[in-house]
Computed example of a mutant assay.
Amino acid sequence: MGAGAGRANRVRGEIEAVINGERRILCMTLGALAELETAFGVDNIGDLASRFSGGRIGTRDVMAIIAAGLRGGGNVIEDGDLGDMRVEGGIGGAVSLAARLLASAFVPEGQKQNP
């Protein structure tokens, strides 16, 4: 069961998504970003941002970003669990969710667009 009974607080960088039919809260916390640095073998947040700035992203990348965001939002999830989860909107919805999570971490507030 995830932390997400309420609604996402955008001021805190939270994002709402429906995964396995359940509304969940995801957030790119510092811990989530550190998790991604480790997962992608980069040394710092600048290298992590550079990795995603080209717009080319693989399925494993999407899974790692969503898993980190779920954990950052207080959801209990193991790495292997996400592969069996269904994100609302299918693969397109999952890619969009990953992009929104990255934007919440790396795009300056004034440049963000409403989803």
Rank of each mutant, 00 (worst) to 15 (best):
G2A: 05
A3W: 01
G4L: 01
A5G: 13
N9R: 08
N9V: 07
R10K: 08
I15Y: 00
V18L: 04
V18N: 03
N20S: 14
G21N: 05
G21H: 10
E22M: 06
R23F: 00
R23S: 06
I25N: 00
M28V: 01
T29R: 12
G31A: 15
A34S: 12
E35R: 05
A39E: 09
V42G: 02
D43T: 13
G46K: 12
G46E: 11
D47E: 13
L48S: 03
A49V: 03
S50I: 09
S50Q: 05
R51H: 07
R51F: 00
R51L: 15
G54M: 05
G54Y: 03
R56L: 07
I57P: 05
I57H: 05
T59W: 10
D61W: 04
V62N: 12
A64S: 11
I65V: 15
I65N: 08
A67N: 12
A68G: 08
L70H: 13
L70Y: 10
L70E: 14
R71Q: 03
G72T: 10
G72R: 11
G72L: 04
G72A: 07
G73E: 07
I77G: 00
D79F: 05
D79T: 05
G83H: 11
M85E: 05
R86V: 10
V87L: 03
G90D: 11
G90T: 01
G90Q: 15
I91T: 13
G92D: 08
G92K: 09
G92E: 02
G92L: 12
G93K: 08
V95C: 04
S96D: 14
A98W: 04
A99D: 04
R100G: 02
L101G: 04
S104E: 12
S104R: 02
F106M: 14
E109S: 03
E109F: 13
E109V: 14
G110A: 04
G110Q: 15
G110H: 15
Q111L: 10
K112H: 12
Q113W: 10
N114A: 15
N114F: 13
N114S: 10
P115M: 05
